[in-house]
Design a protein around this nucleic acid. Structure first.
Lengths: 240, 240
DNA sequence: CGGCCGCTTGAGCAGGCTCAACGTGAGTGG
DNA sequence: CCACTCACGTTGAGCCTGCTCAAGCGGCCG
């Protein structure tokens, strides 16, 4: 049982044989240091990367040197299931923390798609969720102010990590600098810092030492206008 | 030959029999008035909608009543290829102008996926492009100022419409109000209006009477930091 | 003709940015 | 083991982009 299996089971429980297949496919792992590029913009790839432990992100560098992060990859996430089809990558994927990753060769994926309908559906579902997350981020950037924007992001990461068992007592790891947080939500570092301060003062969330604490997730979700339905997780803990 | 075929051929030319199949599948059409909801948030659907003529958009309404638009659908686009798998829609799709749409029943799609690999690849490609567009919109909202944000959006729509033959002399239809433009790029109507004014004064783009004119697309793209590679169109007219 | 929707412009306000300085902790080399 | 460095976080001050409120205008439709 690894994070990948746990993630896929958020959609639907896997049969024993499917779970076994996934565990075998991801049995050979590799440890990658933080700030390492896994996929570079403009390159092609023929492997699919799965994050088993640690955090990574997708981003693009603009002409003016600014960086825009548009996705976080957490344990259980697939980096590039989709992109394998395109001539040329239009984004870069890099680790944020030290990561344990597994690389699945393309033929293996194609075999799965050909022979395991349940797994194929699960893969499909992960793509749809990724897309839904992108839509929510657009909403976040387009319609919410600094404080709520950050709070909403924290709620999302909380929910996603909770799904793979990485939240304990309202706390979870988030190995980001405030700079990177800013590059995600479209704010300057300074303003990120001030917004974090007010979130802390309101008792909604504390971000320090690369981890986040949300004492009352229900209150936090209300404050952030956060509705987890877009994540389409089977387990939407009703007690939140 | 309709817009859908033309769109799919942006990825790869279709065989005669594939093209025929697509034309047959979209032969029965329906005209829908502007501002009509095609798919409602929270509902399920078992048909796939294809836009053959006119414009539509995807959006979400926030708790505070604000609307965030996160995609435009132009002729040739599929509304919900992906979403059919999810329990519950997390977005609304509505027409912006009068539209000619065709509804393909789910079984037909499944047949195609089972029997026509070339078409399946083309469908897959459209999903990847949709996702790439979402990423670019995040970048737009997160990293660019009002004027460039609007200019970049215009460049994108120009490229997408050009791909299906809907641009003539640097002009194309764009049946939006300034309000809707604002709901897309995260700006107030007033500021959209002022930004459009400066774009006009710079001679970069004119938006009036529901259509856009871009006299020198090359200059416009430079100004907007626009690189069409994320659209993954085969036809990236080199003269731009 | 009147009403309404959408566009335009002005004025003042504020959220978020930039620049700048300082604090703090972890790692490194002497 | 301590001093140094460097990356990251924190805070202040002033500015500017984009927002709100408000009013006027123009064209389309009933």
């Amino acid at each position: 049982m690894n994070a990948f299996v746990r993630k896929l089971e958020c959609y639907h429980a896997l049969s024993e044989s499917d779970a076994e297949l996934i565990i075998n496919a991801t049995s050979s792992t590799r440890i990658v240091g933080r700030r390492t590029e896994l996929i570079r913009e403009g390159e092609a790839t023929n492997k699919v990367h799965v994050i088993l432990d640690g955090f990574a992100c997708r981003y693009k560098i603009l002409a003016n040197g600014a960086r825009q992060i548009f996705a976080y990859l957490v344990p259980g996430d697939i980096c590039d299931l989709h992109v394998a089809r395109l001539d040329e990558m239009d984004q870069t994927v890099a680790t944020l923390s030290d990561c344990t990753i597994s690389e699945i060769r393309r033929p293996t994926i194609l075999d799965i798609v050909a022979e395991r309908p349940a797994l194929t559906r699960a893969f499909w579902w992960t793509m749809l969720v990724d897309e839904a997350v992108l839509r929510e981020w657009i909403t976040n950037l387009g319609s919410r102010n600094a404080e709520i924007r950050i709070a909403h992001l924290f709620c999302e990461i909380h929910a996603r990590l909770d799904a793979v068992g990485l939240v304990a007592d309202g706390m979870f790891e988030l190995p980001l600098t405030q700079q990177e947080l800013g590059e995600t939500v479209g704010l300057s570092v300074v303003h990120v810092n001030r917004s974090l301060k007010t979130l802390r003062e309101r008792g909604l969330a504390t971000f320090r030492k690369h981890s986040v604490e949300i004492p009352q997730i229900k209150r936090m979700r209300q404050f952030s206008d956060f509705n987890p339905n877009y994540l389409h997780l089977k387990i939407n803990s009703p007690d939140y």
